[in-house]
Design a protein around this nucleic acid. Structure first.
Length: 578
RNA sequence: CGGAGCGUAGCGCAGCCUGGUAGCGCACCUGCCUUGGGAGCAGGGGGUCGAACGUUCGAAUCGUUUCGCUCCGACCA
């Protein structure tokens, strides 16, 4: 491809509304342009990377036995009413009416439609297992779209849905998809982790997220330093530690702590470590139920765990007035002693072994020291409700401790069970001619988000550094003085033609620009391999070869440069370039 | 949805407080010159100042309304 025949509108300046690096660089590199909040045009260069990734996904999905189809982006309300999600989904579901006043929505996901297909078409046990997937544009009217393609309203997603006879078979389908996902992200050359995750509103029994590691990631994940355990911090398990043997040696003593409300202030004031204090919090489900949650002072409450433990639909911190109503004290001096009847108290596992701890008294400006669980207050309900942190012991192996990472969620696999199939009555006849409910799984990959995540993970101050499998072009050829130096242009064109003939994607920069200008552009758009033709070296039949990711410039003959490019592309993208 | 801010040329911004000729840098066009890390000189084109209404002799500037966008939070995956 000649540069002049392509279209790459690069920007020298960073658009002011781009917060994260991938968004800034995709704008500057001319890959995307914004049309409205969270809605982007994929410009030619951006589309090439998107297509690259789609192709990898497609190959691995096909390899895993999934079958591609394409479902509608506009869907009738009836199906959603049937699955109960028309009411549940909220404003994120963009709804509208057609000319006949029938209600429709823009599809945010496709469980309903695929389940509808399944119940119509899958009637016999002989038709399963089967797995359908599509790569398609979805729309979620996000409250706050941001970060470019990372969290848009309109976005491309690969979604797959598996259908199985029973739970055991569904587990096999899940494993297949899990393995396919591992291969997909490995092929892209991304640094990622597969982590255990909460199933959230989609529901189901088990779930893994695929996280590309990047400091700008919106999610925190942990992984074990020894074993393979890794999980989203929302989900990561805190373990129960054995109680200390000795009973408390100090008496429960009330001390004045004037104005010391936060754990840090109290610990500081009493000259004790924060881990010797107990944090008490009051939470509400928004519908009149309240609980007190206790975690060790240096720990944080994991609201999601508590919500799941209680079986609540919603959870929030109680307001100051609510706290006073239940404890008689403003926040800052809460504790488990002398609470009013009826307030459920749930303590984190790590509260159990504490001795001589500091707790609130439920009286302003007063705390107790020397508090001992079991003696001074009862731990009637113990649960894992804290947010695990770096250095915590691994819940799976004896030796490891947990490390914490930031990650970008690019893939998510769920075991759905029969949630949608029973709601929509998707059943089949088994060998005995009896009706059985189909077991489902669903599997998503954010296409645009993965491409953005690849940039978050691979860039420097000059621009993008594409991993070869996702690069819009494998190689660029910069011609020095392309307008006047006919020999250089001819050499470049010959090299370009040879490379394209063997499947290497080449961008030949034939623009009438100064060399420095072109180099800046090529660094910005991040093409992995670069050949420079022209200038003083051409007389010796030499061209320059350099990798964007670093390494020294090499002077090579055109033949050697050809080999170097082919070798690099083959190594990174497998036998043939795709 | 709560809080904050911003809409002036394709992009980045100044001008607004204190009303009176709409500006700067980059980009773009023409010419000259230049050709190894976003060159230089000269000339040039481009803006109903987000929109509506109001105040005023006169509004980018003051007021009201509205739309859009961004940030923080809650929300979502």
């Amino acid at each position: 491809m000649r540069y002049k025949n392509f279209f790459i509108p690069t920007l020298k300046e960073t658009p002011s509304d781009a917060e994260v690096v991938s968004h800034q660089l995709m704008m500057r590199a001319g890959m995307i342009r914004k049309l409205a909040a969270g809605i982007y045009t994929y410009m030619p260069l951006g589309l090439r990377s998107i297509r690259k990734f789609e192709q990898i996904v497609r190959e691995e999905m096909n390899q895993a036995g999934a079958i591609e189809l394409l479902m509608p982006g506009v869907q009738p309300a009836e199906l959603w009413i049937e699955s109960k999600r028309w009411a549940q989904y909220g404003k994120e579901l963009l709804r509208f009416k057609d000319r006949k006043d029938n209600e429709f929505c823009l599809a945010p996901t496709h469980e309903e439609v695929i389940t509808d297909i399944a119940r119509r078409e899958l009637r016999s046990y002989r038709q399963m297992p089967v797995n359908f997937y599509q790569i398609q544009t979805k729309f979620r009217d996000e409250i706050r779209p941001r970060f470019g393609l990372m969290r848009g309203r309109e976005f491309i997603m690969k979604d797959a849905y598996s259908f199985d006879l029973d739970s055991t078979a569904a587990d096999l389908s899940y494993d297949k998809m899990f393995q396919a996902y591992m291969r997909i992200f490995e092929r892209c050359g991304l640094n990622f982790r597969a982590v255990e995750a909460d199933t959230g509103s989609i529901g189901g029994s088990a779930s893994h997220e695929f996280m590309v590691l990047a400091s700008s990631g919106e999610d925190a994940i942990v992984s074990c330093s020894c074993c393979r355990y890794a999980a989203n911090t929302e989900k990561a398990e805190g373990i129960r530690q054995p109680s200390g043997s000795a009973a408390g040696t100090q008496p429960l003593t009330k001390v004045a702590t004037p104005g010391k409300k936060s754990i840090a202030e109290v610990a500081d004031f009493l000259n004790l470590p924060q881990s010797s204090t107990i944090k008490s919090l009051v939470l509400s489900n928004g519908e009149g139920s309240f609980v007190m949650a206790m975690v060790r002072g240096d720990h944080e409450l994991n609201e999601l765990k508590l919500k799941n433990y209680l079986g609540w639909d919603d959870i929030q911190m109680a307001t100051d007035e609510e706290v006073e109503r239940f404890t008689g004290s403003p926040p800052g001096f809460l504790g488990p002693v002398g609470l009013m009847e009826g307030l459920q108290v749930i303590a984190d596992y790590m509260v159990e072994p504490l001795q001589n701890a500091v707790i609130g008294t439920n009286e302003t400006d007063q705390h107790y020291t020397g508090a001992n669980p079991g003696r001074d207050f009862q731990l009637s309900q113990l649960a894992d409700i804290r947010l695990v942190g770096a250095g915590d012991p691994c819940p799976r192996c004896a030796e490891g401790t947990l490390e914490i990472w930031r990650g970008i969620e690019v893939g998510h696999v769920f075991k759905l069970g029969t949630k949608y199939s029973s709601a929509l009555q998707a059943t089949y006849l088994d060998k005995d001619g009896k009706d059985q409910v189909i077991f489902m799984g669903c599997y998503g990959i954010g296409i645009g988000r993965t491409v953005a995540a690849a940039i978050e993970q691979n860039h420097d101050e000059n621009g993008i550094i594409w991993p070869l499998p996702l690069a819009p072009f494998h190689c660029s050829i910069v011609v020095i003085n392309a307008q006047k130096d006919e020999a250089a242009l001819a050499t470049a064109q010959a090299l370009h033609d040879r490379l394209e003939a063997v499947g290497v994607e080449v961008l030949l920069d034939d623009r009438d620009e100064r060399p420095g200008f072109k180099f800046k552009d090529h660094d910005l758009i991040g093409i992995p391999l670069r050949i420079v033709v022209g200038g003083k070296h051409l007389a010796d039949n030499k061209v320059e070869f350099k990798q964007r990711a670093g390494g020294d410039m090499q002077l090579l003959t055109p033949d050697q440069a050809f080999e170097a490019v082919v070798t690099a592309v083959t190594a990174a993208c497998g036998g043939k370039s795709s």
